[in-house]
Design a protein around this nucleic acid. Sequence first.
DNA 1: ACAATAGGTGACTAAATGGTCACATGTCAA
DNA 2: TTGACATGTGACCATTTAGTCACCTATTGT
Lengths: 106, 106
Amino acid sequence: MIDDVFKALADPTRRRLLDELFEEDGQTLSALEQRLPMSRFGVAKHLKVLEGAGLVTTRRRGREKLHFLNPVPIREVHDRWVSKYAEPWASALTGLKRHLEEEDQR
Amino acid sequence: MIDDVFKALADPTRRRLLDELFEEDGQTLSALEQRLPMSRFGVAKHLKVLEGAGLVTTRRRGREKLHFLNPVPIREVHDRWVSKYAEPWASALTGLKRHLEEEDQR
DNA sequence: ACAATAGGTGACTAAATGGTCACATGTCAA
DNA sequence: TTGACATGTGACCATTTAGTCACCTATTGT
C-alpha cells in the first residue's frame, strides 16, 4: 500500500503530473497530455499508476475523465515515514558526535 | 539529485535498511546482511544506491565499512516536496467543494 | 444519424532493476 | 606469513517498467 505510493512517486513524470494537478486540479487526460512531452498512452499509464496508489482520484463527466490530486497518501508518507527521519536532527547530531569521537581515538 | 532520493526510497528493502540504521547507526555490511533475507551482494547493492542518493554516509574502519543514516536528503524531500502536497488541506477541501458543486449542478 | 472527440485495451520493444554468483582485493590476528 | 574475515567488481539472468502503437468503445454537438 504505502509501497505503491513510494513507487508511484519514484518516477519524475508522475511527480510532474502531480505538479500539474497541483497547479490546476481536475484536468482531463487530454489537457495533461498537452503539457507533457509524451504520447497520450504514456500519460494515461502514469495516471493509472497514480490512481492505483491513491494519489489521484477521478470522476467522469460525460466522455471526459477529471483527475484530482489526493493529498492523503502523501500525508501518510509524511506522518509515518518521512517525519521519522527528517525530524531527528538532535539524534543525528549525537550520531555525528559519536562518529567524530571514534574518529579522534584512532 | 532529488530524483535519486525518490528512486532510492522506492524499494522496500532500501527503506528497511534505513530502518535498521535508524535503530542502530554505524552498522557494517555484514551486520546488515544478517538482518535481511538476502545475500550479501544484494544488500551491498542497495547500500550503494542509498549512498549514491546521499541517504547513507560511510566511514571505513580497517576492513570494515560503517554505514550511517543521513537525514538531510529526506529533510529536503520533506521541505520541498512532501510538505507542499501534505499540508494544503484547506485547498484540498475547496477543491472537494468545487467538485461537489459541479456534481450538484448535473 | 454521424463525424469528431475522449478515453480504454492488449501487444510489443527497449531499457532499467533486483538478485545471485565466481572471483579479486585488502585487512586482521596469531 | 598465513588463514580467516570484510568488502568490492563484473558478469549474468529474470522480472519489471516506460513508452509506443493499432484498434476499440463511449459520448458529444450538429
